[in-house]
């Protein structure tokens, strides 16, 4: 059965290429520390399952130190669109669009194909991992197509992937760290501690205050954790179910759905949601790493206010 264990080494190869590329570039601003960062990360993806848990943990801390002490900075930002690109654009024309559009189309197509097969008893792919396996396979196939269209070898694929990865830098791994922190928080009982503080000190007898506490708590906790999924169980167990549903008889489906979406407004506002906010700022080579958050803030704040109002009107 094909599972993620087949896909992780592919990502490991891209990280390794990034490490080698940095080491071979004497003008790279963080040549050796940057190279070490990507190579250690590659190790976690290539053989992570076979490492002792404490060794993987030590690597995780080592990576954080390298990133935190400024050891990982993007190399020279080569413009992707030089003279060569202009010439090639003329030569290849609209054929260039095909491999780019193939990634989403193939991902969705493969996903449906795997589902169709498993409904007929043929479990080629682990069903829980279908989307990500499809994405990985689609990227492989699209890369094959891109190399065919452009007439280049697979080395160029790795090299160009490494170039873009270097532009993103440490922000590429922040989501993994937050997920790890989420696991540690769950084990340590942080949610219960927050809940006991909130219920002790807020006048939750008023439905409006209770809606505000639940909604703003979702948004704030999401800003800190970078992910509404981490905030939802904590706030819903602390305020949502005992107070809104228990005391004020809110509709549980409406409260849960709208509470989660209130958290999403927080996701739009936080650098901790790196893959939505920091990674695109790096990919688009914005001067300001928080540029995307600034562009989202007006939408997010107005929506947050409106959503709190909608909750107050609709959930009771």
């Amino acid at each position: 059965m094909i599972g993620l264990a087949w896909i992780y080494p592919l990502a490991g190869l891209v990280f390794l290429a990034c490490g080698i590329r940095a080491a071979r570039n004497p003008r790279h601003p963080r040549r050796w520390s940057g190279s070490l960062f990507w190579c250690l990360l590659a190790l976690l993806f290539l053989v992570g399952d076979r490492l002792q848990a404490w060794m993987a943990g030590a690597l995780v801390l080592g990576l954080a130190l390298l990133a935190g002490l400024g050891g990982v900075k993007g190399g020279d930002r080569e413009p992707g669109d030089g003279e060569e690109a202009t010439r090639e654009a003329g030569r290849l024309g609209n054929r260039l669009f095909l491999p780019a559009l193939a990634i989403p189309v193939l991902t969705v197509g493969l996903l449906f194909a795997f589902r169709w097969m498993s409904a007929r008893g043929l479990n080629l792919v682990n069903p829980a991992e279908g989307t990500l396996v499809s994405l990985g396979l689609a990227c492989g196939l699209a890369l094959f197509g891109a190399l065919r269209v452009t007439g280049r070898g697979p080395g160029e694929g790795l090299g160009e992937g490494a170039r873009l990865l270097d532009t993103i830098g440490w922000a590429a791994v922040l989501p993994l760290y937050l997920a790890t922190l989420g696991a540690v928080f769950a084990k340590a009982g942080v949610g219960e501690a927050v809940a006991s503080l909130l219920t002790r000190y807020l006048p939750l007898g008023s439905p409006s205050v209770a809606v505000l506490a639940y909604g703003l708590g979702m948004a704030t906790f999401t800003v800190v954790m970078g992910n509404a999924f981490a905030a939802f169980p904590v706030m819903t167990a602390a305020v949502g179910l005992p107070v809104l549903v228990g005391t004020h008889h809110a509709n549980p489906a409406a409260m849960a759905a709208m509470g989660m979406l209130t958290g999403y407004c927080g996701t739009l506002l936080t650098p901790m949601a790196a893959n939505f906010n920091l990674v695109p700022a790096a990919l688009l080579e914005l001067g300001d790493p928080h540029g995307v958050i600034r562009a989202q803030a007006p939408t997010a704040l107005v929506l947050l206010g409106l959503n709190l109002l909608l909750m107050r009107l609709l959930i009771f």
Binding site: I7, L10, A11, V14, G80, D81, E84, A85, T86, R87, E88, A89, G90, L92, L96, P99, A100, I103, L135, G136, C139, G140, A142, L143, A146, L147, V149, T150, R152, E156, G157, L158, G159, E160, G161, R163, L164, L165, I168, A172
Partner: peptide, 14 residues
Amino acid sequence: LLTLPVVGVLERHG
């Protein structure tokens, strides 16, 4: 991040 090699190659070629 697995999309990066495809996007990088295509960008290089315009």
